[in-house]
């Protein structure tokens, strides 16, 4: 799992993956130090996020173990970031809710770990799923969740019948349809004529749009997870299960028979061998092979800035993400 830092940077330099020399100088030691400190099996440079503020993030991913449990790969990976290359700080793995929230954030990273991104709640018709509410179904006693519950109940007709009583405690005067309109009002503001009579309970805060704040570090960790899931490219055969069912680097990896075929590369975090890149939507990947040396560079077009290389001579491989941290939303229009 641990990439050879020098080889990876050398191979991907021609793709524009250059670590500023001061950071490059620092990570030589700091990554090793962090790895020992955190008790990791491996720790490798993951990428660099350009930030609007100018203080870029270097990211590293550590692996405690990758185990095959019940025919599924279970990853115990850790995320770390650094803004100067010397000090590596932990990134909390994002919860699924945070992860989903972060997918909605647009715009560049700011370079300030304390920056908060505001993620407005989605408009209610497709049911507001923001964060915690979806997970706690039993808690319908607090007023805020009651509102959410109501929205849920409205869209699912059969639920509204069963949960009706509990909701009625909160707003007995409003039948479900206006209540949904109420949620809408909270978010979009000027929509008063739909429910003029319902003004006693919740609509205390009409001006500020509803939503949640997400910290930059949460977004950073989510980005790593997201790119890992979408990319995480490893040549098939490059990693193998050892006797203890750990997925480890294959020390006798003989290279790929047809290195220029996407079938020979897998998404590590999406089943590895069972998730070859060729099963992705055609055109998501750009694969280029050098003549003679047979070195392969794979670029993700979904995540511009994700580069993976697989050497054709010593079968070394590795990948880096050097980008602005945004997924290519328009890819459908851009590929041929």
């Amino acid at each position: 799992m641990e990439n050879n830092l020098i080889l990876t940077l050398e191979a991907l330099a021609s793709s524009g993956c250059i670590v500023p020399s001061e950071m490059r100088c620092a990570i030589q030691i700091s990554l090793k130090y962090k790895k020992r400190d955190a008790g990791l099996r491996s720790l490798s440079l993951w990428g660099r996020i350009f930030t609007a503020g100018g203080k870029d993030y270097l990211l590293a991913e550590g692996v405690k173990s990758i185990k095959l449990v019940k025919r599924k790969l279970v990853f115990d990976t850790r995320y770390y970031f650094s803004q100067n290359g010397a000090v590596w700080l932990d990134l909390q793995s994002p919860s699924d809710e945070q992860f989903d929230l972060c997918k909605k954030i647009k715009g560049p990273f700011r370079g300030d770990p304390s920056h908060l991104y505001f993620v407005p709640d989605p408009p209610p018709p497709p049911l507001p799923p923001p964060g915690p509410e979806t997970t706690m179904q039993p808690a319908f006693l607090t007023p805020t969740t009651a509102v959410a519950e109501e929205g849920e109940g409205d869209s699912k007709e059969e639920d509204s019948a069963t949960e009706g009583e509990s909701e009625m405690d909160e707003d007995s005067d409003g039948p479900p349809p206006p209540a949904e309109a109420q949620v809408e009002t909270d978010e979009e503001g000027p929509d008063p004529e739909l429910n003029p009579e319902e003004d006693n309970g919740e609509p205390a805060e009409p001006p500020p749009p509803k939503g949640q704040d997400v910290g930059e570090l949460v977004r950073l960790a989510s980005l790593m997870r997201w790119v890992d899931e979408d990319c995480g490219v490893v040549p098939i055969g490059g990693m193998v299960l050892d006797a203890h069912n750990n997925l480890v680097q294959n020390v006798v990896f003989p290279g790929l028979e047809f290195a220029d075929k996407l079938e020979y590369y897998g998404h590590l975090f999406r089943g590895y061998e069972r998730g070859p890149l060729s099963k992705d939507i055609t055109g998501f990947w750009s694969l280029q092979q050098q003549p003679l040396t047979n070195d392969v560079t794979i670029r993700s077009l979904l995540w511009p800035g994700y580069h993976m290389y697989c050497s054709g001579t010593n079968f070394d491989f590795g990948s880096l993400y050097f980008g602005w941290g945004e997924r290519n939303r328009d890819i459908a229009f851009m590929i041929n």
């Binding site: 055969g237 193998v240 050892d242 006797a243 294959n250 006798v252 990896f253 003989p254 290279g255 790929l256 028979e257 047809f258 290195a259 220029d260 003679l292 047979n294 054709g312």
Partner: peptide, 27 residues
């Protein structure tokens, strides 16, 4: 001896030259 599953590993990954292999074309 504990990791004699190396045998499996080798079997799964060792390169055995075949006809029409990509490497044979090299250069």
């Amino acid at each position: 001896v504990d990791v004699l599953e190396t045998s499996f590993l080798l079997k799964a990954t060792r390169y055995i030259s075949k006809e029409s292999s990509g490497f044979l074309r090299e250069g």
